[in-house]
């Protein structure tokens, strides 16, 4: 099996002349600003601006209305002493690692199965479906399915005569949230990974089969190396989206006016719970901002580390 890897140090692709001097390049450069400025303005106004504002607010006590009072790093040190925040942090990391591992493991298995199946575009659509439907709708459906007299318990008691299982009680709620998260997200990653696997020429697999490679070996020596760039992007993508999971937990664990129990909060719910959330909101904007900034820093670091860990020379084929 020979794979062409570009020699280190040489650019992989040449994009036009190094300093475009032709008429085309000049006019393209003239178009650069008008096209970039609108996006940049919006990005500054709606992403960078609010992030900087949150950083500033995080050093204050602020109820959202009165004047802000300087608080230094007190919000940050209070966070580490707050058991609810520590739980939220742990839950966020559990979602990232445990749900993430499950999502990628299931995605690989499904990829291997679906790759060789007939009608795979249909199956791909079915797998992708949970990702299209709003998480709020899914969480409501899950509530009906798993509640005390819900579908699952009814089926179990009809078929096996079992007592209803308290799927949604305090002990099981977070586990159900993890399972739900995996179920919602897997379809997306199957689709991404499948698209990458589809690019791999069939003869690699045929050759592996002839060499007597089993399914695991085909995954290990063909699929993974040849789709590694996509997988690493998908991993980064999951890391970022896991931090932002909000509505599934909120709607699955809570009710119209109430937050879910703090034991299942992740960091996004913590921010909401300390600012606007609940029947009687806390309005602790400084504290909520501090937690959001802390998570931003933590996840930025995580992503940098992850990118280094996942970096490989891409393989052309």
């Amino acid at each position: 099996m020979t794979l062409a890897t570009p020699p280190v140090g040489e650019p992989r692709h040449r994009r036009g002349s190094p300093r475009g001097t032709g008429a085309f390049d000049r006019s393209r450069r003239r178009l650069y600003l008008p096209f970039v400025v609108p996006a940049l303005v919006l990005y500054l106004a709606f992403v960078i601006g609010p992030t900087l504002a949150a950083l500033w607010i995080s050093f204050h006590r602020w109820d959202g209305v009165s004047d802000m009072r300087w608080n230094g790093l007190d919000n940050y040190s209070a966070l580490f002493d707050d058991p609810t925040f520590r739980t939220a942090l742990a839950n966020t990391l559990i979602i990232l690692v445990v749900a993430g591992a499950a999502i990628f493991a299931i995605s690989f298995v499904l990829t291997m199965i679906v790759r060789e199946m007939r009608g795979r575009s249909f199956i791909r659509s079915v797998l992708f479906f949970p990702h299209i439907v709003s998480a709020i709708v899914l969480s409501i459906v899950w509530g009906f399915i798993f509640e005390h007299n819900g579908t699952v318990n009814t089926i179990l008691s009809t078929v096996f005569g079992t007592e209803p299982i308290p799927w949604l009680n305090a002990d099981n709620l977070f586990l159900m949230i993890l399972i739900g998260t995996v179920w919602i997200s897997t379809g997306l990653y199957v689709t991404i990974i499948l698209a990458a696997v589809d690019r791999i020429p069939r003869y690699f697999y045929e050759e592996a089969l002839l060499a007597g490679a089993n399914a695991y070996q085909r995954l290990r020596f063909v699929t993974l190396p040849l789709s590694w760039d996509v997988i690493s992007v998908a991993a980064i993508f999951w890391t970022i989206s896991s931090l932002k999971i909000f509505e599934f937990i909120y709607a699955f664990g809570g009710t119209t006016n109430d937050m879910p129990p703090p034991a299942v909060w992740n960091s996004a719910l913590f921010v909401y719970g300390e600012s606007f959330g609940g029947r009687s909101p806390s309005y602790l904007f400084g504290y909520a901002s501090a937690s959001a900034i802390l998570m931003l820093v933590l996840f930025t670091a995580l992503i940098v580390v992850l990118r280094r860990l996942l970096r490989r020379d891409s393989i052309e084929f």
Binding site: A170, P261, S280, S282
Partner: peptide
């Protein structure tokens, strides 16, 4: 609930649920 909402939500209510479910 109104005046100490943060305490109520984060400390009292979770413990109370444990008490009321026999945990």
């Amino acid at each position: 609930l109104g005046d100490f909402s943060d305490f109520d939500k984060k400390v009292f209510q979770p413990l109370n649920l444990q008490l009321m479910t026999g945990k």
